[in-house]
Design a protein around this nucleic acid. Sequence first.
DNA 1: ACGCCAGATTGATGCGCTTCAATCAGGTCG
DNA 2: CGACCTGATTGAAGCGCATCAATCTGGCGT
Lengths: 365, 365
Amino acid sequence: MVARPRAQGHGGPSMQDVADAAGVSLGTVSNVLNHPAKVGAETARRVRDAIEQLGFVRNDAARSLASGSNSSVGMVLADIENSLFIDFAHGAQEAARSTGLNLLLANAACDMTLQDNYLDLFDESRVTGMLLAPMEDSTAGIARMRAHGRQIVLLNYAPKPGTCCAVLVNNEHVGYLAARHLIDTGRTRLAYIAAHEDYQPVRDRRRGVRAAVDEAGAGVDLEEIDSGGLTTEHGHAVGRALAARDVDQLPDGLVVVTDELANGIIHELHTVAGVQVPKQVAVVGCENNRAAGPAAVLLTAVDMPGRAMGQEAIRLLLDEVVSGKAHRHATVVLEPELVVRASAPRRAAAVPPAQRPALRARPAR
Amino acid sequence: MVARPRAQGHGGPSMQDVADAAGVSLGTVSNVLNHPAKVGAETARRVRDAIEQLGFVRNDAARSLASGSNSSVGMVLADIENSLFIDFAHGAQEAARSTGLNLLLANAACDMTLQDNYLDLFDESRVTGMLLAPMEDSTAGIARMRAHGRQIVLLNYAPKPGTCCAVLVNNEHVGYLAARHLIDTGRTRLAYIAAHEDYQPVRDRRRGVRAAVDEAGAGVDLEEIDSGGLTTEHGHAVGRALAARDVDQLPDGLVVVTDELANGIIHELHTVAGVQVPKQVAVVGCENNRAAGPAAVLLTAVDMPGRAMGQEAIRLLLDEVVSGKAHRHATVVLEPELVVRASAPRRAAAVPPAQRPALRARPAR
DNA sequence: ACGCCAGATTGATGCGCTTCAATCAGGTCG
DNA sequence: CGACCTGATTGAAGCGCATCAATCTGGCGT
C-alpha cells in the first residue's frame, strides 16, 4: 500500500501515471488539480487517492510551459546583510502572500554580475514580475528586462524616468530630518559624513542636509567629510581624524549617511578617544539599520519605512500585471521618520522655537 | 534593425524563430547555447546575432522540462529577520556560486504553513536540492521531500536520525561556553533564561549550561527562569521581575538563550532599574545576533559560525547529488566561539585558575 | 418513447526546449 | 577514384502538463 519508490531518474510519477492508477484520463487529473468544480466528487476522490499513493508531485516546469504562466515573483536584493533590504523583502512577502503569489528572493551580495545573473534567471523562469532593490545604477539590467516584456519594480533607487515603476523613500527628507534635528537641538557646527556617491540615496541625503542648513541661516555651518567608504572601519578612521582635531575645530553635530558608519565613528570618538557623545558631539544616522553593529551610545537615526515600501512595490507590480497596456509607470515616495535615541537626544533648543523657521512637511524636490 | 517588439502574449521569440532568422535548424540554436564546441564559428555568430536581434530569452520551463534538470537550489529560511539565518544564506550563496548553482531564497516568516508552501514550491520546481533552516520540528516536510526523492539538507536543527544530512552548531557547547565564561569570571549565582523549549537549540543550550555548572561544583548555583518568549518585551518583563528582587536574591550571572531577549533584560535592568550590568549582574547572550536590537551595554555572546554552516550545507548537498545511491547521510557539527564584550567582561577570576577544572574542548554530547 | 440539455469525461494538440540518431559536406588515404 | 572518417547540421521524438472541442452520460420534459 506504500508508494512504490519509482526510480527518480527523469522524474517521479506523472499525471498519466496517476490517471492510469485512478482509471481516468489525463485531463481529468489535471482538472482535479486546477478546476476541482469540474470534476465529480467520487472521481476526484479516486484521483486524490492515486496522487497520494504514488506520491505524485506536479511538475512546475511542464505546468508553466503549458500554461504560459507562473505564480512567483522574483525579488533581487543588492545586499541581504542590510536590514533595510530585509524589510523590503518582508513587506513584499506580506503583500505577495495575500494575493497568492510566491516571493522568491535572491541575494546579489553587492555584486553587479550576480545581480544580473539573477535578473536573467528570473527572466528565463518567466516569473510574473520582478522586484529589484539595487545599490548601483542598474539601468542596463532594467532595460533588458523591459525589452523582454518583463514587469519590474525598482526599490529605493530612482529609475530613468518613464522606464518602470519605483518605490522610493524621500531621501532628501532623510537628510533634512537628521540635520534639522541637530539644528533644533542647538547644534551649530554640523558635518555631513558620507562616501559612495554613486549610490543615489547618499546623494539625495546630502541635498536634504544642505537644505536644512541653508534654511537655518548664518548661525549654522556645514562641513562635508568624505569617509572613503561605509564600513565600521571607515567610521573608525573618521572618528580618529575628528578626535585629533582641536576642540574648537570639532563639529558639534554629525549627520552620518549610514548607521554602520555612524556607529564606527561613535566607537572611536566616544569609547576610544573620550570625546563625549552626545555632549560634545551629537550623531544622527540615516537608516535605522538593525544590522549596523553594536554601539555603546544608541544611535539616533532616521527610520526608513522599509516594510511599507516592500508592500507598495508588490502593489505596483500587480497593477502593472493586471492593467497590461493600460498601465502607466508610477513612482511612489514614502516619508521617513526620525527615531531619537541617545546619540542625539531631544533637548531644549539653544534658540527659542519662535525664532526658528517653521518645519516644512517636506523639503522641495 | 531593432528587435521587433513581438506581442508577449504567450511568450517572446522562440528558438524556432531564432533558427529561422539565422537560417539554421532548431537543434543548432540549442547547440550554440548548450554545446558551443559542436557548432561552426560562422554559424554560431549568425545565431548569436539573431538572438540579439530578436531579443530571445530562453524559456527555463521548457528547458528544464526537456532536460529534466535544473541549476537552482532552493533555501527555505524560517526567519529572514534573524541575522543567523542571513549568515546561513550568505555562506550557502558563496559555496553555491563557486559551483555554478543558483541559490533561491524563501522566507517562511516563522510560519510553518508558509514554510511548507515553499518546500512544495521548490519540490514542484524540481530544484537540484534544498536547504532548510527551520525553527520548529519539520519532520513531516522533510519526509515528504525525501519521499519524492528530493535531496534536502537541514540547517541548525537535528534531523530524525538517518533521514537527511544536517549542519549543526554544537548548541550544548554554546550554553557551556556562556556559563563557563561567567563562572570563570567569578560569578556564582547563575540563571539560565529561556523559553520556546520546542526549538531544539534552546534545549541543547540548557544542557550545556547545566554541564558547566555541574562541573564547577558546589560553589555555583543555577536557577532557571522561563521568559515566556524570546522578544525584547519578554526581556523587559524578566528584567523587571529580577529588578524587583532583594539584592541577595539576584543572580550575578545570566545566560540568556537569545540576544534579543538578553538586550531586553539589560535594558530593563540597567537602563530602567539601575541594576548595574555587568557589575552586579553579568549577561551573556547566545547567538551574537546582529539583529538583536540596540543595547546600552554591549552584549557578550556566543558566536555561531553561520557562514561556515551555510557553506558546509551546500557541500553536503552537492555530495548527495553527485554520489547518488552511494551517499550516506552526514551530520556536521561546527563549534561556536565566545565573543566578549561589556555585558560580561573578561576579569580576574574569583578563584585562582589552578583550582578550576580544566576547560574541556567540548562538553560530552 | 423520444429529444434535449447540463454536467462529467476524454483525447488530441501544442507549449519551447534538449537530445540523439541520421544525414551531409568536405577532406584524406589507399 | 572510391572508401572512409571527421565535424557540422538536421529533424524528429519526446519531456509533463493545460486546454478545449468533442463525446458521453443520465435525467428531465413532453
